[in-house]
């Protein structure tokens, strides 16, 4: 499978990158790790005439201390996972990043690329010839969303592991364009539309992601996938909470891969606030979170079961945040020994 032709440009600064992007924003695409864009190009899902390679911009690959951490969009997932500040203070983000794809793909893929990951769908992530066999779909070259043929919008699935967790950690993103920079909460970066799933303008570059200090918070990420590696999430729960003893002072629950964007489970959170985190409350919050999940028949696993699994994933995350020993359960689901996190190291207290 060959890449289609393109013009390749390699800026050394983000200013150059923004300026070059502004020249032809509609036909240019940014290349970071390449693990999302290049397969899409080989399958002719995305066919930019110009690729702007960001790997030469050193500033994008840094993690800086501040009020919390500012993570350059070009930091590879491997480097993120290797950073002790992430592991000790943002356990959920560590868990999310460490479960993306495979070791090789984490060596290549960046946090910015994972946040901006193209939405996925088994009607869309196919070769050109395959898509021709179904007369294409709404997201590229066609008219209909085959997932739900009466749907006016594309139902491709947000399949990023890190974005739900970053949203639960109340992260913000900095977008840079030739006209300047703007900062917005990461929740506002996403829209619930499989085609237009980012509010990023075509001339903007995601430069960095800032996570606040979050003293006293704990976080956890639970992912559903078929195998211990390779697979995108087909449902996930990103939970961050601040507890006073067992009482929930503050919390955020964000669901991944059950919608075209990371989905905030506000009603489940409302149940938790001010309450003791009992087994019953955890079960109830899990059920409330699952109610808003809208899995469609366009990923691995049956959609009804995926919806049920949301409840189990949210519950598991809450148990882990409460300090329960979830290592056996995590090993069974994630099949990675290294992901087990003793409660004592799971977050700053």
């Amino acid at each position: 499978m060959r890449l289609p032709g393109f013009r390749y440009r390699a800026p050394r600064t983000i200013e150059d990158a923004a300026a070059w992007l502004a020249e032809q924003p509609a036909d240019s695409m940014l290349l970071a790790g390449g693990t999302d864009l290049l397969p899409n190009m080989k399958r002719r899902q995305q066919t930019p005439s110009t690729i702007i390679g960001l790997s030469g911009i050193g500033a994008l690959a840094e993690i800086r201390n501040g009020d919390g951490l500012t993570i350059g969009a070009g930091v590879t997932l491997s480097n993120l996972v290797a950073d002790p500040r992430i592991r000790t203070s943002y356990a959920g983000l560590w868990q999310a990043a460490a479960q993306v794809a495979t070791p090789h793909l984490r060596n290549m893929g960046t946090i910015g690329g994972n946040v901006c990951l193209d939405t996925r769908c088994t009607y869309y992530d196919q070769n050109y010839e395959w898509r021709k066999s179904i007369d294409f779909c709404m997201k590229r070259d066609g008219k209909t969303c085959w997932v739900a043929t009466s749907s006016p919008k594309c139902l491709a699935v947000s399949s990023t592991d890190t974005a739900p967790m970053l949203q639960a950690l109340d992260a913000s993103v900095t977008l840079v364009s030739a006209g300047g920079a703007r900062v917005l909460p990461i929740a506002d970066l996403f829209a619930n539309d499989g085609m237009h799933y980012l509010t990023r303008q075509r001339d903007e570059i995601l430069a960095s992601i800032a996570v606040p200090a979050l003293d006293g918070w704990r976080s956890a990420y639970w992912k559903l996938r078929r195998r211990g590696a390779f697979d995108f999430p087909v449902a996930s729960a990103a939970v961050a909470a601040r507890l006073d003893g067992r009482r929930v002072v503050d919390a955020r629950i964000v669901l991944g891969a059950v919608s075209s964007r990371p989905l905030s489970a506000d009603r489940a959170v409302a149940q938790l606030l001010g309450q003791e985190l009992t087994d019953d409350l955890i079960a109830s919050a899990g059920a409330a979170a699952a109610e808003i999940a809208k899995p469609m028949d366009n990923t691995d696993f049956e959609l009804v079961w995926r919806k049920k699994m949301v409840r189990a994933l949210v519950s598991a995350a809450l148990h882990e945040i409460r300090g329960d020993d979830m290592r056996a359960r995590r090993l069974q689901l994630a099949r990675q020994e290294m992901l087990s996190m003793p409660a004592s190291t799971s977050a700053a207290r």
């Binding site: 390449g34 690729i51 491997s78 060596n107 290549m108």
Partner: peptide, 13 residues
């Protein structure tokens, strides 16, 4: 020194 997938690395990079 780092293992990557050569099918997803642009030669120019």
């Amino acid at each position: 020194g780092s293992p990557v997938l050569s099918c997803l690395v642009l030669a120019v990079e």
